[in-house]
Simulated scan of single mutants.
Amino acid sequence: MPRVSRKQADLNREIIVEAATRLFRERGLHGISVVDVMGAAGLTHGGFYGHFESKEALAVEASDRAFEQVAGRWRERIGTAEDHAAARRALVEPYLSTASRDNPGDSCPVVAFAGDMCHESADSALRETFMTGLNRLLDTLSQLMDSDDAASNRQQALVQYSLMVGALTLARATRGDALSDEILEAAKGFLGAVPASPAPR
């Protein structure tokens, strides 16, 4: 059998990471096997260990890729917004859309991976990747708040993003029932009405 070229090997590795990024978001970091990933990539199982030393090593890279994809989309949406309020809407509306609910493989990695993180040790590479990605998104959202107080902006970002994640999770759990759409609409309405910083007393 002819040896695979370096260019082809690099392409195969990229295909594997992309397939894993989608599958992990659809089924969770521990919900798929190497065979599943390689099948989705259209490659043979035996070639996996020529690219990665373990499934966990792939999961770390795929998790990082998922967060970077979302961070990139956030940057694009923010970049076309005319002010902070418009930027927040540009993030919230697609995040809490039916398309986001119905396509987990291309959606929020926080929703996809949070359950798995409950079972990871504090010093695991997977948890470190998750924490880095989560904090990057929270920092981005914090910068879209209108208070002059950084601590207040951070608190607002924590509350709003927690609501976004919780609403999307519940909407997926109730998909097929009218409650699912109701949850998405209620969360979007609430976030659109919430002031970016605490109102003066």
Rank of each mutant, 00 (worst) to 15 (best):
D177E: 14
T132H: 14
Q143W: 08
A71C: 11
T174D: 07
S197P: 03
L134F: 14
E53C: 08
R6I: 12
L144H: 06
A20T: 01
G166K: 12
A86P: 02
M131G: 07
P195I: 12
A81Q: 05
L168G: 04
A178Q: 11
F48E: 05
A171Q: 10
C118M: 15
D83I: 03
P109G: 03
L141W: 14
G46W: 10
Q160I: 03
E68F: 04
R127V: 06
G39Y: 02
G46I: 09
L11H: 15
A90L: 03
A171I: 11
A71H: 06
R3K: 14
M164R: 01
S121V: 06
R3F: 07
D116H: 07
R13H: 12
D83M: 06
V60Q: 02
K55D: 11
R175N: 10
A178S: 12
A71E: 06
V70Y: 04
R101H: 13
H45M: 05
L126N: 04
A173D: 13
F190T: 09
P2E: 11
L163F: 08
G72Y: 13
G72E: 12
N135L: 11
L141C: 04
R6F: 10
R175I: 07
W74N: 08
E53P: 05
K7H: 11
A9P: 02
E56D: 15
R27T: 08
F67H: 00
G47T: 10
A150Q: 14
R25G: 00
N12F: 06
E18N: 15
H51T: 04
E76F: 09
P109R: 01
G115R: 02
P195E: 13
A62Y: 04
E120P: 06
V34E: 06
V110R: 00
A125Y: 05
H119K: 05
G42K: 11
E14W: 08
Y95I: 04
F24V: 04
L191E: 00
I78R: 09
A87Y: 05
T140H: 06
R13Y: 12
S152K: 08
N12R: 08
A9C: 05
A193V: 03
E26L: 03
D64S: 14
L141N: 02
D177W: 07
T21C: 14
A20R: 00
P2S: 13
L43W: 09
A81R: 02
R73Y: 11
L144W: 08
F113M: 01
M164P: 03
E76K: 13
S197E: 14
E185S: 12
R136E: 14
E68Y: 02
H51S: 14
P104L: 05
A167K: 00
L163V: 13
V37Q: 03
V111M: 04
R89S: 12
I78C: 07
L134P: 01
G39V: 02
F48G: 00
L91W: 09
V159P: 00
E120D: 12
A90K: 01
